[in-house]
Design a protein around this nucleic acid. Structure first.
Lengths: 238, 238, 238, 238
DNA sequence: CATGAATGAGGGTTCATTCAT
DNA sequence: CATGAATGAACCCTCATTCAT
């Protein structure tokens, strides 16, 4: 009997634990979505906690059960944003081996994401370098591809950091642009082409890499970005 | 005698007025220098007034005799920075007519200024688009030259905003870079060349425009930037 | 069991809610008491927040959790004072139907309250018309009784506003007097009689109305005024 | 020759002194007018110096050449107001010997002044007791007449302070009323009559005293009040 | 774990007063 | 004596963080 009891108790504990963990995860996600929106619309240094908890509809205390400080929240959002982008971009880069192709596709995807999800664009723009530096895309994938491209002669011989600036600069500027202006549908392609040219790729080749087919439909189903968009919409509707 | 008296009185009033105006101008300049330093080191949204007044060594009240709000201060600094840059760059652009040459020189000069004056670079980086959009260089000169280059066939046919992003993006990224990394002396030239290539200029031509002789000695004598540097140095020494 | 759980949860929530509301109410009362004292001793336009919070022994933030501005605080105090006076006076006026009797009793009660509770008198005097106009006594009861008295011929035919001035003027002046001078115990009666005479009531009749028995013992047990007095005493003792 | 010289020098000094004193007096008057307006419209505890100097059109420093503190300014205005009122009222009271007549005329004159000069009324209302207590009318004339009236049997036997409240209370209330409401032309007469009744004067007698002929035309020519009115008008017109 | 009242350091702004010109 | 820039104490208000329930 003690066995059964302990079994059932264990099971119940397991169950409780699992349910609890799930609920915790959900709450955390909810707070991150709200925080993304708040950072996006108010900037990084603005009042944050009040906004986040009212956006998320939870109490102060709850918030501090998940993030101990403001900065921890920002880092968590930045990390989550980076992860999410990588999760979306990685599968599409996987089949590509030519660095030029990978960079062109990466640029186009990021621009596309920024277009589709204004809060994401706003977060990147307002968060500045810190929001970008957190993620693997800019800190691992991009340097690696740039180095490979120089190595293979695909790109001109450029100092690594210069090449980095030549890619990231235009992309961040474009995030700002898609947020504030109406731009043609092929903005990403044109930007990718120009960036490749700046890296030393001939115009025709650059065009070819930049305009290859790319299916961006349903890229972001159920991502942090979708959920943030949804939350933003529902808030605006109230 | 009454005539002489009134004359002398008038003179005295004029004198007082002129002296007063000069002192006012000096104090304003002093506050702007300090504010540039503060914005540069703490960011745009940080505590400002306290820092500025202690940097400038004046009282709280004095600050508010010159700027009524935080934003007013930021705008004033941004405007002054823009003016100062233009004052430095304009004479050197004047003799140049080819848009590619003008843009290359403009890029190199800005990078050079950023290298020489870290506070300026930091202000631009932290202030973001708003710090740049205030000035004539980015809002008038650059668009005009880009349009002229496209018109004359010197550049590819690009949407104006895209061309703008292709220039400003790398320049801002480079400002960040020169602030945080050690870069070779020809960073500006290399960047200018790459940017021209991204605009469609052939590599060899781009190199030629980007490497033409440019004397940057004594560019900034007695400018806001020099004075801010000096102030920063004296503060650090204390 | 789930039923019982949810029940108990509900109960607990209710309990928490109720306890919270009670605490909130207490804090609010405490702040109002302190504010009454501060307004009374420093005047209406004086520095308030600092004084109030140190008098109440709470933090700055707490204050702003209850009142967002100075004015909001003043209005709240004025309203509370009015309510409190009405709560005390109303039961004693209820059995009286003759306007002269009602006004005489009202005047005597107010004077008596002012005598017993210097902070109240001071608040009324320093707050001026605004402190009085907030309440039902001066804005509803008094005009109504005056109109009724004129209607019934008990009073002379006077413009409503004039009659109002003839009552309120002396009462406010008397509040000032009882605060600064020692006055005989029958000051209120004498004042009430004189006011009735100014309204046209014959001297003997006015005397009769003004001197009828009135038990003012224990009028104000546990009122805002008592608590304010107590707080003032404890502060003075420190 | 030395004699002549010294004579002429003396004369010149005298002249300069006299001219200086006159100019000083004028400036002082100008500041007092402005201050009266400011106290009237902003209250006693409001920002004062800035308002006064901009109303008077002089510099900060000049202000402090005439009044060393805020309070000194207020006292000066209150004193000047009292003097001015007395200067106007005294000649008209001079021929009257019966205390009832003197009080009735005094009340009517004050009400009339308040009607004609809203800034005066506002100053009295906002300044409170302190604004009134400064002057001879309320502190000397009134108590003396009240005592004489009681002595001679014209009034009931009342404690001095009570009688004082019975006169000053209604008058102050009426100042407030004439400032905020439209009242009939005979408001002052009616008030005076009622006040006399409250002091124990029979209705018919009170009416007689309160309605005796009184010429109030041109009472205040070139007084502080006229000048303040004029200044207020010219400011409003700008 | 959720809640929300309480905290208090921190930042912005005003304004009476001084003082060199 | 007029001027107005400079001063700094005093205030108001916010908001990240803590903690008892």
């Amino acid at each position: 009997m003690s066995t059964r009891q302990s079994k059932s108790a264990k099971k119940s504990v397991n169950h409780r634990t699992r349910v609890g963990a799930e609920r915790r995860e959900k709450m955390r996600a909810r707070l991150l979505e709200s925080a993304l929106l708040v950072f996006a619309s108010q900037g990084v240094d603005a009042t944050v906690v009040d906004e986040v908890i009212s956006t998320a509809g939870v109490s102060r205390g709850t918030f501090y059960n998940y993030f101990r400080t403001n900065e921890e929240l920002f880092s968590a959002v930045a990390a989550e944003v980076s992860n999410e982008i990588l999760r979306i971009v990685d599968p599409l880069l996987l089949p590509l081996t030519d660095p030029a192709a990978r960079i062109a596709v990466g640029i186009r995807l990021v621009i596309e994401l920024a277009r589709k999800h204004p809060p994401l664009a706003a977060f990147v723009v307002r968060g500045g370098p810190a929001a970008v530096a957190a993620g693997g895309l800019a800190t691992e994938y991009l340097p690696r591809d740039l180095a490979a491209g120089v190595e293979s002669g695909r790109f001109s011989t450029l100092p690594p950091r210069l090449a980095y600036d030549l890619v990231l600069g235009p992309v961040l500027a474009a995030c700002h642009t898609v947020l504030t202006e109406r731009v043609p549908a092929d903005y990403g392609e044109a930007l990718a082409q120009a960036v490749l040219q700046s890296l030393g790729v001939a115009k025709a080749t650059a065009r070819r890499f930049a305009t290859q087919m790319l299916d961006v439909t349903e890229l972001t189903a159920d991502s942090l970005f979708e959920r943030a968009d949804a939350r933003a919409t529902s808030l605006a509707g109230e």
